[in-house]
Simulated assay, not measured.
Amino acid sequence: MIKVLAAVAAGGAIGSSLRFLTSVWVQRHWPQHFYMATFSVNLVGCFLIGLLSGLFLTRTDIPLELRTGLTVGLLGGLTTFSSFSLETIRLIEGGQAAVAFGYLAASVLCGLLAAWGGLSLARL
């Protein structure tokens, strides 16, 4: 259990750091589109969790520490539903309701499609 916890903690630190660096980069280059950092990491994370989950179904020899560290740790730290929710509210409060609802719909739909795409790719 300690090894699994350590793998989750290490993966979470890496995933959270990647999310932070993505946000910094987007803020520097497209400050008016601050929400695209969260959108991007959520899509990547959804795709990767689908892909990895599919691979782990067929590769039971992969250690639990690695599987859990990647999915719960790395991808859990990378994806950011709470940030997504706050950013949607900020857009609405900023008078950008149409952008907020577009962001909401695109995030949910594209996230589901990305997870399905990753899982489908893993099943090939």
Rank of each mutant, 00 (worst) to 15 (best):
G11F: 01
R28E: 14
G111N: 03
T71L: 15
D61W: 00
G111I: 01
L113W: 03
G76A: 05
R59S: 13
A106K: 00
F81I: 10
F56M: 02
A114M: 11
A9H: 08
L18C: 13
A122I: 04
A37K: 10
F101R: 01
W25I: 08
G76Q: 05
A6N: 05
L43K: 07
V41L: 13
E93I: 05
G69K: 11
S83Y: 03
L119G: 02
L75Q: 13
L121I: 07
G118M: 05
A114V: 02
V24Y: 09
G95R: 07
L112D: 01
L104D: 06
T60F: 01
Y103G: 07
L78P: 08
S120Q: 04
S23L: 13
V4C: 12
W116C: 01
L121G: 07
L21V: 06
G118K: 02
G76R: 09
T71M: 15
L21G: 06
A37N: 11
Y35M: 12
G54Y: 00
V4H: 07
L5G: 09
W30A: 09
V72C: 13
V26N: 14
G11Q: 08
V26Y: 12
W116P: 01
L52I: 04
L86C: 12
V41T: 10
A7E: 05
S82N: 11
D61A: 11
T88A: 15
L104H: 00
I49H: 10
E87V: 11
L55R: 02
A122P: 06
S120P: 02
T88W: 03
L113K: 10
R59P: 05
L109G: 06
Y103W: 00
F84H: 04
L5H: 00
L121K: 08
T22L: 10
W116L: 02
G118Q: 03
T80A: 15
L51K: 06
G111R: 04
L66H: 10
P63D: 14
L113S: 11
E93R: 15
L57S: 13
T88R: 12
I89R: 14
T71A: 15
A122C: 03
G11S: 06
L119K: 01
H33E: 10
E65L: 08
A122S: 07
F84T: 08
A37Y: 05
F34E: 06
R19G: 02
L5W: 00
L18S: 09
F39N: 06
Y103R: 03
F101S: 04
A7W: 02
A100T: 09
G117Q: 03
Q27N: 12
V72A: 14
V108N: 11
I92W: 13
V41Y: 06
I92V: 15
H33V: 00
L78H: 04
S40Q: 03
